[in-house]
Nucleic acid binder design. Structure first.
Lengths: 330, 330
DNA sequence: GCCGTTGCTGTAAACGCTTACACGCAAGTG
DNA sequence: CACTTGCGTGTAAGCGTTTACAGCAACGGC
């Protein structure tokens, strides 16, 4: 089943069929109707691979993330895919598993499949791989990985905003002993969050009151860090965490120690993953809209692909505090 | 950058380059080495679209699911993709959003992209669409949707097993007033679970003690159903739910009513989504291994593609109770 | 009546690969 | 020595599209 058979049935040339499909040039309405009918009757779908081969455009986009199993990502993937499908593009997903080697594999697959562009949200973005993409003129959008290249756009996430709102919130609830459970320090984004916490303390003249424990952005690390905090002579009255998984771990550790949230300790997460409002109590956290992130990334990528190299290739996504039940005044 | 340039650099014909890449026929080791070096030097990646066009195999697989945002799916997707990537296959994902129309779109995209096979795990599988796939000779694997066709395999999930274990468990803890919160009754898989509950009661001579409320496999429906159960004159001492989201909703409703789990009511979920062990208390639930499901589906699909039409095209995945802290003896 | 336009359609050459077939050559066979 | 055989390689056709170019009819202006 190919364009030739359609042409034969509609009694036109293959060129006319192609033109009808792509409505690239004017085809007489009567002819087009005949072609369309033939297509209908034969249930013909054009072969995308042949199209790609000659046109150079695959109508496929790559999306590289760390791990679809991490609850941060599914919404991002969904929004991105929705955008793509709406515009007739396909998305192929690469899971790096936090592993630079697999990241390299992802990039390779993207290149082999001749994707029209790649969006990357992962911390394993080795500069060499980025080069690989730009060298092949593949437009690339980085979400929160900081490096902008020639053919690429960069989407920053305004972590500080949300942390500041959280600090303000805790402050207005009279908390003064506020701890922070950080993420892995090799992640720039984790450092940014910690720094926002420190600057929040500093601006209130409380620099000497900082309490920082290191987590790993996973539940286990959050629990462990919280246990350390609970051993402190003056334990914190409130804790901000670098992400929600950390907060969930911390919550478990607090309850396990026989304390309550928010009565004994207020707790704030980060990301607003879907389970954040299902914890007991529902977690006060900082929303980072994956939808907004995906929509922005997609738009940026599309602009890059169409070479609308507009004035800015830099975007910013805000974060905001959402109050639920894990914080309370003292 | 194409095979021709590689051929020129290695001073061989394009055929030899192709043969080296695919090691399909014998190439003299020395020649192959020269070719490989040229590939290396030029950083050549073969164009998959051209390959597909001539070979008819796209090395792409389709995976159609309801919604990647539903916590049941990410692990399934991940395991399936891992399998695929390991074997040099790409996966394209279709989200139906529980919507038959979008399901049709997914199928269409799969056909257009000429996937080598499709795995489907979604309840919107319209027979007409299935026909569309089999008509085009696209091997198809259905997970838990019940319909087997010509070019397809079927993977059943043994829901009854897990439910029976759960009943047995509750029974041994002296529970006799056991309720069940069911899923949407248009889903065969939901009916199967309910029926297993009923048969569990019956085999213990407790048919007259059945308490069934209908949920929707979402949190909200679970909460609502639980509220109804709590209003009963003799409220249940234990509740089994059709899936974990339902259980989480039920848990919220129980706590909200001022009761405790498991002290006042024992609760059992189904699926073992990643958050099931993070609830307070950690949820006793029934494991349905997504990894096993994905691995089986992939193997079945591969067999179908290779036309290893062996003795069986039917597979079964077991389910088992995993005890955590949401159940207790009375 | 001639010529330049305009509008539609057809012809055929790519796109980058795989593979059937052919070919040359060295080794084995009678 | 002529022969088959088999291995390694090259030639070229073809996969299903898109698209540059050409062709052709109808039309209007002169």
């Amino acid at each position: 089943m190919n364009i030739k058979e359609v042409a034969k049935r509609a009694k036109v040339s293959t060129a006319t069929v192609s033109r009808t499909i792509n409505d690239s040039e004017k085809v007489r309405p009567g002819t087009a109707a005949r072609v369309r009918q033939a297509i209908e009757e034969l249930n013909f779908y054009p072969n995308t691979h042949a199209r790609t081969l000659v046109s150079g455009r695959s109508r496929m986009l790559g999306l590289i993330i760390s791990d679809i199993t991490n609850p941060f990502y599914p919404e991002l993937v969904k929004s991105f895919e929705d955008q793509a499908v709406e515009r007739g593009q396909e998305v192929i997903i690469g899971n790096t598993d936090y592993n630079p080697k697999r990241m390299a594999g992802c990039v390779r697959r993207m290149v082999e499949r001749k994707v029209d562009g790649v969006a990357i949200m992962t911390s394993e973005a080795d500069p060499a791989l980025v080069t690989e993409l730009t060298r092949r003129n593949i437009p690339t959008v980085f979400m929160d990985t900081g490096k902008t290249g020639l053919h690429s756009a960069n989407i920053r996430i305004d972590y500080a905003q949300g942390i500041h709102e959280a600090m303000q919130h805790l402050f207005s609830l009279n908390h003064r002993r506020i701890a922070f459970i950080a993420g892995p320090m090799n992640l720039e984004s984790a450092r940014t969050r910690r720094d926002a916490y420190l600057s929040g303390l500093k601006s209130r003249g409380l620099s000497d009151r900082s309490m920082i424990e290191k987590g790993d952005h996973r539940i286990e690390g959050g629990a462990m860090a919280m246990r350390s905090l609970l051993k402190l002579p003056h334990r914190p009255t409130a804790v901000i965490t670098s992400n929600d998984l950390t907060a969930i771990g911390a919550l478990g550790a607090i309850l396990h120690a026989g304390l309550r949230v928010p009565e004994d300790i207020s707790l704030i997460g980060f990301d607003d993953i879907s389970f954040a409002h299902l914890t007991q109590p529902p977690l006060t956290t900082i929303i980072l809209s994956r939808t907004q992130l995906a929509v922005t990334a997609f738009a940026a990528l599309e602009a890059l692909i169409r070479k609308d190299e507009g004035p800015h290739t830099d975007y910013s996504i805000p974060t905001h505090l959402v109050m639920r039940a894990s914080t309370r005044a003292i």
